[in-house]
């Protein structure tokens, strides 16, 4: 990422600040590359997809995941300690009666390591404001219409606690392998703005 030809005013101001910090020995360009590499390669929704597929196929893992996700994740070689601080993860399970959806009303808290970089809409004031007051309406904007009888639970993440939705396993998927099941899951399914 050392080549930067963006000539917008803010890109120039970022470059200027970087140069000052490098001069003061507070920043090393190689360090920036390492940070970005870790961010873009280790933080991936594929991790969340694997967790869901395992929970769908291994009842013991599902139980452990719902009871204490931080202790269950290492079974898949994952953890919540990859960022700047370890976060408590709470996995919330969708059922016939309850649908879960995540938000961070104050900022943009999100389980990066399991879901990858967060989409702009998740960080937008529009989503953060509205999903807590009109969740059904917001889900409909995403094309997810839930039966009136389904209760919607909204989970507000914070600096120490993050959430991930465990979607319901789609019907007719009994013959699929764990990898095939993982391929059915979407990033929005893990946030709760899609069914799976």
């Amino acid at each position: 990422m050392s080549d930067d030809h963006d000539d917008s005013p803010i890109a120039a101001r970022v470059r200027e600040l970087e140069a000052v910090l490098e001069e003061k020995g507070l920043l090393d360009p190689r360090e920036l590359d390492q940070v970005l590499e870790a961010f873009t390669h280790r933080a991936s929704p594929a991790n969340g997809f694997r967790v869901v597929a395992r929970a769908w196929t291994d009842e013991g893992f599902r139980t452990r995941l719902l009871e204490n996700a931080n202790e269950a994740l290492p079974e898949l070689g994952l953890s919540m300690g990859g960022g700047l601080q370890v976060q408590r993860l709470h996995v919330v399970e969708n059922t016939e009666d309850v649908h879960n959806v995540l938000v961070c009303t104050l900022c943009s808290c999100y389980p990066l390591s399991l879901l990858g970089p967060s989409p702009t809409w998740y960080k937008s004031p529009a989503y953060r404001a509205k999903v807590v007051s009109h969740p059904r309406e917001v889900l409909e904007q995403f094309g997810l219409t839930l039966p009136e009888t389904t209760r919607i639970e909204v989970w507000d993440a914070n600096a120490e606690s993050r959430y991930m939705v465990l979607p319901r396993r789609p019907e007719g998927t009994g013959d699929l392998t764990e990898a095939e099941l993982a391929a059915l899951v979407t990033r929005n399914g893990l946030i709760g703005t899609a069914a799976v």
């Binding site: 990422m1 970022v14 470059r15 920043l27 090393d28 961010f39």
Partner: peptide, 19 residues
């Protein structure tokens, strides 16, 4: 949506973590 919409955004994210 890509993780970053411009290179400078990635630089800001990485700069913050490094600091």
């Amino acid at each position: 949506e890509p993780p970053f919409h411009a290179d400078w955004e990635a630089h800001v994210m990485a700069m913050n973590r490094a600091l």
